[in-house]
Design a protein around this nucleic acid. Structure first.
Lengths: 213, 213
DNA sequence: GGTGTTAGTTGCAAAGTCCAACGAAGTGTT
DNA sequence: AACACTTCGTTGGACTTTGCAACTAACACC
């Protein structure tokens, strides 16, 4: 039976760019190298794969996040020198990065946000993790393109301007304001929080939240 | 480390309906019950998860199919009575059902095509397999909706009429001929096989194949 | 030659999308 | 108080895509 781990690709917008949270490994193999935070499946405590991913995120990053999503599984005999056959289940989390402060947990020396382009191109990442990051980014971009849950990158409440700007940063291109709003309205993605406005230096903006469904 | 299996959801159009290939189990647990064909991961021979899925399909069904796709992984302590913690990696295959004759292999008593609706509703399927079928169907329908690879359900060569009718059966609604063809042309999904026509009782039709890309 | 059936194209109206401009509602400046 | 400035939110119109129906084409069969 294979040596089984969970790896978590935490994505967030930091400095106006899509970045991934990497951990510097404290122990062999690949000690000192950067890798996705992850941990070993524990069949004595984990009630499911989703629960295991939550536990790993709690132990390694000190985070409790609701929207984890299973991305894929990778397996093979040469992935990890500790075992003759290593299997990783990869999860993805989306976070409003400014509001979430992960802290380095067990077996992690340091944590850092890295722009996804760098991480994918960086051949010095441990294991096959640069490829896993690539998959996480690809599937996330596809979801944003369909206007599925881009709001997970934002706090609970936000204005449509913030949401649109978030999507533009994720996709790397400008979007049209009127069609963007029409689509949101059609698909009932968000709903206004009655009476709440974001005030500032200019005209106040209506505050929205994810639609209940 | 968990007891790890691969399960294969083979989907095909049979009798004008989307059906899934089920196997009656020869051995415990769930002997005599219907389940997705599957097998245990063998870390001594499998070079990757994809290769393992191919091997299982060869051993259990006698099939060699090119387009397997990993769908998801499911794991937990109560999924399989043989082990304290069972993990399954689920693969999906699409086949031109009329041309492919799977044969019951190791540890399988019988094979049968079942309409996917039946299989999803049937609570007597072994393990959590009716749920896995549901996921396979859902993701497949979504891909057909985007006109990704609906041609995998067909032989190498086909007419546009056959392809359209296939999509209509999969989606359960009629499609417009002109816009269907416009989309195929735009996205360069298929290409004509010059000079080859399907003849029959009526006007001959141009034969197409998947575009090389 | 006429009829029936499927293949493939064309024309057009309706719907949707993209782009730019506009009025609205605030703050800060003069 | 008047004005400039910025962002919010909507509107109008050109353009593109889609959906529907009609039309021609090419065969078999009678």
């Amino acid at each position: 039976m294979p040596f089984t781990r969970l790896e978590i690709a935490v994505l967030g917008l930091v400095d106006g760019e899509l970045q991934v949270l990497l951990a510097r490994r404290a122990e062999a193999p690949h000690a000192g190298k950067w890798a996705l935070p992850g941990g070993v499946l524990r069949i004595d405590v984990d009630a499911s794969l989703d629960a295991a991913a939550q536990r790993v995120m709690r132990e390694r990053l000190g985070l409790e996040l609701p929207f984890l999503r299973q991305l894929c599984a990778a397996g093979g005999p040469t992935r990890d020198p500790r075992a003759p056959w290593a299997l990783s289940i990869v999860y993805r989390a989306l976070v409003p990065a400014e509001n979430v402060k992960p802290s380095a947990g067990k077996r992690i020396e340091a944590l850092a946000w890295r722009p996804v382009g760098d991480a994918i191109a960086d051949k010095s990442l441990a294991f096959d993790h640069s490829q896993l990051v690539s998959q996480a980014v690809e599937s996330t971009r596809a979801e944003v393109e369909r206007l599925d849950l881009p709001a997970r990158f934002l706090p609970d409440q936000f204005t449509l301007g913030e949401l649109q700007s978030t999507c533009e940063q994720l996709l790397g291109r400008r979007l049209d304001k009127s069609s963007f709003r029409r689509k949101l309205a059609d698909r009932q993605v968000v709903e206004p929080v009655e009476g709440l406005m974001r005030t500032g230096a200019n005209r106040p903006a209506q505050i929205y939240r994810l639609h209940a469904r």
